[in-house]
Design a protein around this nucleic acid. Structure first.
Lengths: 155, 155
DNA sequence: GGTTTTAACCCATAATTACCCACAAATCTA
DNA sequence: TAGATTTGTGGGTAATTATGGGTTAAAACC
């Protein structure tokens, strides 16, 4: 991992086969880092899809399983939700991934519609455009966010 | 980074392909520092574009992501807004960068219009000329601003 | 076991972007 | 001041990218 820097926002179509393009810059980063496989999963909170390049998935998985106590009910529930909707997939020769019906449903992504892909530095998110807009409207950056920023040394 | 010293104010045109020239002195600094890539992003507060030479972007990104937890909803929301409008771009052979439609829209920069580029020591800002003038008129530095500044170490 | 469904692979094309060359204006140099 | 160089700007062309569809191979399903 290390130096991946997925940033920006891209709009792509979802075709009838549920294929979604991955931004070409992201693909370049992945080939540089010898990654041809990603894990797509339900986003932690809300209605979108997370896309983890395999190495990122592995570290995430390890962090979670390391601190996990199997006897703890909440932990078990979290683990179940975490893995349940996680699907490995490889890019096709045009650089696309195929979404599963379940994840599309969860994210409100419509067949033959569009998606927004957002870079989150070391992974990506896939959103239905309407859901994203709704979410942004509901979570604007507040003054207190910026106050927190100011507390960081030297930004 | 270290010694970059972007200063001054420049006026350039935006052509039909959304290309904007980078001041030649800035380009010289960048080649000296082996930087051929920048990240353009929505400015923190207002309606302009920030241009970070890649090393500056990396340090900024690292400071912001250092204290982030992926399982924290607020953190994720903040990270998303931070990266969403950040686009990597490389200078073309004439030393220009290409603005994205979204950032132009956010900054009020008109197709085929002009921009002002302002040096901010280790990064740059791109403004629509009218927006800049308006902003300057509305936000003169007051005495109380300077009092706050005085509380900062070593200015 | 045969049929239907599903997914991988390949090819085609339109749109977009990167790359290259050109030229006028400004700046530098001798 | 005159010539040479650099700088800002525009446009054409080749390459890349996004997207669609057809075909074969592999599952899944009676």
């Amino acid at each position: 991992m290390g130096y991946s820097d997925y940033t920006g926002e891209f709009k792509y179509s979802v075709d009838t086969k549920h294929r979604v393009n991955i931004p070409s810059r992201y693909r370049k980063i992945m080939t540089e880092e010898n990654v041809s496989e990603v894990v797509i999963s339900k986003g932690f909170d809300s209605n979108h899809i997370d896309v983890y390049p395999l190495p990122k998935w592995i570290t995430l998985r390890d962090k979670i399983t390391a601190s996990m106590q199997l006897v703890n009910r909440t932990h078990r529930n979290f683990l179940r939700q975490f893995t349940q909707n996680a699907n490995h997939c490889t890019l096709d020769s045009q650089g696309r991934i195929m979404l599963t019906p379940k994840l599309m449903e969860l994210a409100g992504i419509k067949d033959n519609g569009n998606v927004m892909i957002i870079g989150m530095i070391d992974f990506m998110e896939i959103w239905d455009p309407d859901e994203l807009e709704k979410h942004q409207e509901n979570t604007p950056l507040t003054d207190s966010d910026f106050e927190k920023l100011e507390q960081l040394p030297l930004i």
